[in-house]
Design a protein around this nucleic acid. Structure first.
Length: 910
RNA sequence: GGACCCUUAGCUCAGUUGGUUAGAGCGCUUCCUUGACAUGGAAGAGGUCACUGGUUCGAGUCCAGUAGGGUCCACCA
């Protein structure tokens, strides 16, 4: 066995073990009937993406769950993969093309797609390599891409199926049009942002009464050429004589438009009159429909104004057009006023430009299984962590709208619909769509494609990723499903994702699962996952979202280089409480690294302390224990190990990862290193005690490494081997983690009294250390302590040599009996064993001593008084539970005793 | 406009069903390189738990409201 080095160097250890894991297929999941399965599908990152801090958190948590499941003896499967990310990827490649002054239309569809695939081959999947650096234990042999042939067939078969069921239809409707990427977007892809601009008060002149005007307020004067009416509320007395009259459109081609009555108009807003522009506003469109008014579309797809806007505006970009329109209105006197105004404007999430409501033909999906999707969560088949997201989820499903699933892109799954050549798609009726002579819908298209033209649009990316848990397990191909272990692994166990895609992805996966997984079976068999853990969003130290444009996101690979993958993992998890956003601070990552070094050195100490014995199994170590020889510290550390194990079990059940990390940190650093390892140092000197002490250390380290392994896999794997817990060809994941009840069942009887004694003993040690520090002698060893031991009350079994060692003293002596006088004028403290006096060479500063003791006395007096007051309160005494009452009485007695002792010490100073 | 979350030490945050004197890490102060670790050890200072009421023997914790910050949803032009 090699000697453990003085400090932990992660780089080489990480490379070595990741290669070893891969070589031995350590992450390959097997179908093992009779054994519990634990499956996670990765939220597939964009194929063009690079690792961000968000990915680090998200994937570390998934890896923790997967590795823990392996240690618990489950067959664990983590499926990795990437998403083709339609708009994002197409935009990236188009940007490259633009450097050559080309557009995708210059290349044509086929050539362009070749280029995207080439890009994907070259740059895609970098992020998966980066996940390996982080230690992710995905089953890489199952890596999938949403545009893989089999996956694509699954996506298209869903379309064909839902079309056949009548859930998919084609319709000309108002959509969110992105003039940047020239495609429709779903409502979920639109961000509402407050925008500062102007609102324009414009007057329209009555045709039959020149000089009489009706005034409207609009933020979009450039759309006035698209106005087809002015609407007022039917009950608005101001306009009773107006309804049915006509006004002149003040901009664009000459036109007289009617004044109509519609209850959708808000009488309180502005003058109570609303201009109706059905082609460019959702509400206007609906009003237009009600009144059978044909829309006038004055915009081109790219957001420039077209000839219907009139010769002056035609060709202008929409915001330039707005300015120009305002100017024209002003010149003609139609503009009454222009006021600064702030309103919410929808922005394309991807392209970052304001969207346009636009009337276009699109494909729509009536969501299946909406009620079941609600029930799956509200009835607890799927549990959300934190639970509060269920409300958000249910609310969205309550108000769900049909999903616009078509995109005017090339990169994606081309919709499997073929039209008979020569058909005018603008005029297709519902009946035409169901006529197989005119429209063909199938996976592979018409047998003879001549005379047929395929739909140009592709599917929304989310219309492929919503079947991720299904298709990654081979669905719908039965051979592939058997091979992937669909029956065994579906439903998957836990999904780890951000709450920002709860609608985009989580809700839709649930509906897809319910519709397709196991038709006819109960909900619980159809859901795609049983738990959903929502992470927080990582923010910078100022609380801002991390983003590329702000440049406030550290590169995780730099952090790995600096602190090690384990340090990064430990650090990020420690600052990620459940359900709260995370404020990133690099010093937390540093303390993750420091923890690894501490762990490393504790194991190093073990190795240096004595010969390694049989560590090959937990029972082998138990056989080395000699419980009869256990002292209080042995009992105490094993007790703490048990308590910590229980706490970690609980944390995993509740998905409280940062609490788990904190519990492990506190146990290992404070209880084990700072106390047990220190007290071990005397035992290790004694041949009679040494082997038992080493066995206890081996037991504690073994359990600790197992509990830590999911969080910090590399270093624990290395130390597992170094300390002989595992042998060549085996990994730590091949071991089984004992939970708290299993440990308890091994038959170790822990002595509660011994544990309590250690607690009291520690209190003594802390009191002496504090006393020394208070006179500036924190580490000086050449001092002595005398204490008057109240043996009747505290029978102490520790020998005086141990006491002096732990307190850092030259010597400790007991004052025998009550007759022996206390050392005069010595600094003194009250300990659980009785008053203790410090004997120092230098003369103590009596005045300072008095101040110190007086302060302590005051504090004690305050606590005594408050406890007395509580006990004097009759309602407390009569109503508080007995345990609380007893506790208070004991507390009072202790405080009073201590108070009396301190008072005596103070009096002795004169 | 609606829903949800947050406000605890200088900073970032824990605090499970109400119950002794409210915790951790970092930072800060003092002391210490003794054979695991200075990526370390010992000790310490630092908090009217945002505010106002209420329930209760007892409130950081439960209830109502107020203020500030944040997120999501929503067709007011």
């Amino acid at each position: 066995m090699a000697e453990i080095t003085k400090s932990y160097e992660p780089g080489e250890v990480e490379r070595k073990w990741y290669a070893a894991w891969l070589e031995k297929d350590a992450f390959a999941a097997k179908v093992e009937p009779g054994r519990e399965s634990y499956a996670i599908v990765i939220p597939p990152p964009n194929v063009t993406g690079v690792l961000t801090m968000g990915h680090v958190l998200n994937n570390t948590l998934q890896d923790i769950l997967i590795r823990r499941a392996r240690l618990e003896g489950k067959s664990a499967l983590w499926i990795p993969g990437t998403d083709h990310a339609g708009i994002a990827t197409q935009t990236v490649v188009e940007r490259e093309l633009r450097k050559e002054k080309k557009t995708r239309h210059d290349l044509g569809r086929d050539k362009f797609l070749e280029k995207v695939w080439a890009w994907r081959e070259e740059k895609g999947g970098i992020i998966l390599e980066q996940l390996r650096r982080l230690g992710a234990s995905c089953d890489w042999s199952r890596t999938q891409f949403t545009m893989d042939p089999a996956y694509s067939r699954a996506v298209l078969s869903v379309f064909v199926d839902l079309y056949a069921k009548g859930r998919i239809y084609r319709g000309k409707r108002m959509v969110n049009w992105c003039p940047g990427s020239l495609t429709a977007l779903s409502d979920e892809e639109v961000d509402m942002r407050p925008a500062k601009g102007f609102i324009y008060r414009v007057r329209y002149e009555r045709v039959d009464q020149p000089g009489v005007f009706i005034e409207v307020k609009t933020t979009r004067p450039e759309t006035i050429p698209g106005d087809v009416a002015i609407a007022v509320h039917p009950d608005d007395p101001r306009y009773h004589g107006w309804i049915g009259r006509k006004v002149r459109r003040p901009l664009g081609p000459e036109a007289e438009i009617p004044i109509i009555a519609d209850a959708a108009v808000d009488r309180e807003f502005g003058s109570g009159a609303l201009k109706i522009t059905p082609a460019h506003d959702r509400v206007d469109f609906e009003i237009g429909q009600r009144h059978k008014l044909a829309p006038i579309d004055v915009l081109n797809p790219d957001g420039t104004l077209n000839e219907l806007a009139g010769p002056v505006l035609a060709g202008l970009e929409r915001f330039a057009g707005r300015k120009k329109a305002a100017q024209i209105l002003k010149d003609s006197g139609a503009l009454v006023a222009e006021e600064p105004y702030e309103n919410n404007v929808g922005y394309s999430e991807r392209a970052g430009v304001p969207i346009e409501p636009r009337l276009t033909w699109q494909w729509w999906l009536r969501y299946p299984r909406v009620d079941e999707a609600k029930a799956a969560v509200s009835e607890g088949h799927i549990r959300f962590f934190p639970e509060r997201w269920t409300k958000v989820y249910l609310h969205w499903l309550d108000h769900i709208q049909d999903w616009c699933i078509s995109r005017q892109l090339w990169w994606g799954h081309r919709i499997p619909v073929w039209y008979r050549a020569g058909l005018d798609r603008e005029k297709l009726t519902e009946a035409d769509l169901r006529d197989p002579e005119k429209v063909h819908v199938s996976l592979d298209g018409p047998a003879d494609k001549t005379g047929w033209v395929q739909e140009d649009d592709v599917l929304d990316t989310w219309a492929s990723s919503w079947i991720w848990p299904l298709a990654t397990l081979g669905w719908p191909n039965e051979v592939a499903m058997a091979k992937a272990g669909f029956e065994y692994f579906y439903p998957t166990t836990t999904l780890v994702t951000g709450p920002d895609i709860i609608f985009f992805w989580v809700a839709r996966m649930i509906m897809a699962g319910l519709e397709f997984a196991r038709p006819g079976e109960p909900l619980a068999n159809c859901i795609p996952f049983k738990n959903v853990y929502f992470t927080g969003i990582i923010r910078d130290a100022q609380g801002r979202k991390m983003s590329k444009s702000l440049g406030n996101s550290p590169d995780p690979l730099d952090l790995i280089a600096k602190y090690g993958a384990d340090g990064l993992r430990f650090g990020i998890v420690s600052i990620a409480p459940q359900g709260q956003d995370i404020r990133f601070q690099e010093d937390r990552i540093e303390s993750g690294k420091n923890f690894c070094n501490k762990l490393w050195n504790a194991c190093r100490f073990r190795q240096m302390s004595g010969p390694m014995a049989d560590n090959s199994s937990v029972m082998a170590i138990y056989d080395r224990l000699r419980p009869a020889d256990f002292d209080g510290d042995d009992h105490a550390i094993l007790d703490r190990l048990l308590v910590t194990t229980r706490e970690i079990d609980r944390c995993f059940a509740e998905f409280e990862f940062s609490a788990a990390v904190q519990a492990l940190y506190g146990f290992f650093w404070n209880d084990f290193c700072d106390w047990y390892v220190e007290v071990s140092k005397t035992k290790l000197q004694s041949p009679a005690l040494r082997d038992n002490c080493l066995a206890i250390q081996d037991l504690v380290l073994r359990q600790t490494l197992l509990m830590l392994h999911p969080f910090i896999p590399f270093i624990t794997e290395e130390l597992w081997r170094q300390l002989g817990y595992g042998s060549e060809g085996k990994f730590i994941e091949d071991a089984r983690l004992s939970n708290a009840s299993q440990i308890a069942s091994y038959g170790l009887k822990l002595d509660e009294k011994a544990v309590e004694k250690v607690r009291v003993f520690k209190e003594f040690v802390f009191a002496i250390r504090q006393l020394k520090a208070s006179i500036g002698l924190a580490n000086s060893r050449d001092v002595e302590v005398y204490f008057r031991h109240q043996e009747a009350k505290f029978p102490v079994e520790y020998n005086l040599k141990d006491l002096s060692l732990y307190c850092g003293l030259a010597k400790v002596s007991k004052i025998r009996g009550s007759s022996e006088p206390a050392p005069e004028g010595a600094p003194a403290a009250v300990t659980p064993f009785g008053p203790a006096y410090l004997i120092v060479a230098i003369k103590a500063d009596t005045a300072a001593e008095k101040v110190r003791l007086t302060k302590e006395l005051e504090t004690l007096a305050k606590h005594v008084a408050s406890t007395q007051a509580r006990l004097a309160n009759e309602s407390f005494v009569s109503k508080a539970p007995p345990a609380v009452l007893e506790g208070a009485k004991k507390q009072l007695a202790d405080l009073q005793a201590k108070h009396a002792e301190v008072a005596r010490l103070l009096a002795a100073l004169g």
